[in-house]
Amino acid sequence: MSDKPVTRRNFLYITTGTFTAAGAASLIWPFVDQMNPDASVKALASTEVDLRPIAPGQSITVLWRGKPVFIRRRTPEEISEAKAVSLDDLPDPQDDADRAINPEWLVMVGICTHLGCIPLGQKGEYNGWFCPCHGSHYDTSGRIRKGPAPTNLEIPDYVFLNDNTIKIG
């Protein structure tokens, strides 16, 4: 190859080949991207929830973007239990204050961070949530304590619109 002189034909081969490859590659994207969440799915991005009917020690589950979101009005014992935990005991260290805007209200995505099952409330060794699929235990702040799940239950973006209403998303 190296002893042969570079010809006009070599140049044509390489440029034709490069343009064909780049053209074909650019066409792959529409075929890949069509599988991503579409406009109608993205439009359902936020949910408002009225908190008034929930008594202390009660939880509700609402759907947000097709995912369950747990909203729990925690009892004073649960809050003090969550605050008392040393961060050194946590596989995914996070302070309870960083997980609840108002300590009385715990709002989190109710999907186990292991493989997506829905944990059962007020069960497990830490009196928080327990995932029946592969045995992950979460505490009263939804933090992973024991089992295969890698991280704490996810906290969605939410704001208090007033004292009784939150907007998730």
Binding site: V32, M35, N36, P37, D38, V41, R65, G66, K67, I111, G116
Partner: peptide, 17 residues
């Protein structure tokens, strides 16, 4: 996973594909 699901959870788009 969102690409596979065509959304933020398992649903219709996944079933169809």
């Amino acid at each position: 996973t969102n690409w596979l699901w065509g959304g933020y959870a398992v649903g219709s788009p996944l079933l169809t594909r």
